[in-house]
Design a protein around this nucleic acid. Structure first.
Lengths: 135, 135
DNA sequence: CTTTATTAATTACCTAGCTAACTAATTATA
DNA sequence: TATAATTAGTTAGCTAGGTAATTAATAAAG
């Protein structure tokens, strides 16, 4: 097994663990945060838009969105296409998200502080250059 | 949310999915393969050695090792310290692993073919340079 | 218009991470 | 040596990813 893969998997496990830790004060998990984040950017999204954006399967998003609705972060309504479920932030989420974002930014900066801006964008472009064909 | 994180998470999700796909012929999942791989390198390992190597928590390894034992890939014995469980490859695993390795190598090469050797080692060193302090 | 195909979302069930709380064996200490 | 602390592993239960199969609504084709 190529050590690059080992390193990649280890790093993201570590990142996930630490991000969960940073979000604990806000009673959120990493995957929940990423869903909130992308909805907040778009104001409203259907489930399909969410899972396509996150590059994740539909059932995963169904579950996370349901949980976030239970917890009071999200509200949902039927789309004009009645198969669609349209998701948006609750009042509470709009009030709380800025603080959450602050925690996440602190965490990200701590993780990246040993890389210069050039190294960060280099890392980004190398990741993007990697093959994305599904076999 | 820093786009670098988004890209990292997406990439490893993609990698995991594709590696699972590549391993399907051998009736293995990615995490199972990584356990088999590290045991095969060391010949014998205790559970603690495994989870420290993989940078994963103990219960995760307990479960995966049990599953692999059920499936006939692994055998276990008691260590001289009777708390320890020592894990090694079964006869079947030793016979099959070379073919599995072949599939994995093909998969890895396909994923990395758009990067030069220099780019690969650059990516590796950038990942390693990242902060690893647990907060 | 009716039938067929497609699409959005869900349900059920699997692997795979995690934490917290536990047992049993070993090591350190009083 | 008896007790306390540590260590190896497990169990229970959560989030989070996946696939396969299903339902309901819409779109396309006959």
């Amino acid at each position: 097994m190529n050590p690059l893969f080992h390193e990649l998997f280890q790093k993201t496990r570590f990142l996930n663990r630490e991000l969960n830790h940073a979000l604990k004060n806000h009673d959120l998990f990493a995957a929940q945060w990423t869903v909130l984040f992308c909805i907040q950017q778009q104001d409203e999204m259907t489930l399909t838009q969410i899972w396509k954006y996150l590059n994740v399967e539909a059932p995963t998003v169904t579950r996370t969105v349901n949980r976030l609705e239970e917890l009071g972060w999200l509200k949902t309504r039927e789309g004009k296409d009645r198969r669609e479920k349209v998701v948006s932030l609750s009042r509470m989420a709009k009030a709380e998200l800025p603080k959450v974002k602050e925690s996440v930014i602190q965490f990200e900066n701590r993780f990246l502080e040993s890389l210069t801006a050039e190294e960060q964008s280099l890392l980004m472009s190398l990741l993007k250059k990697t093959n994305k064909e599904r076999s």
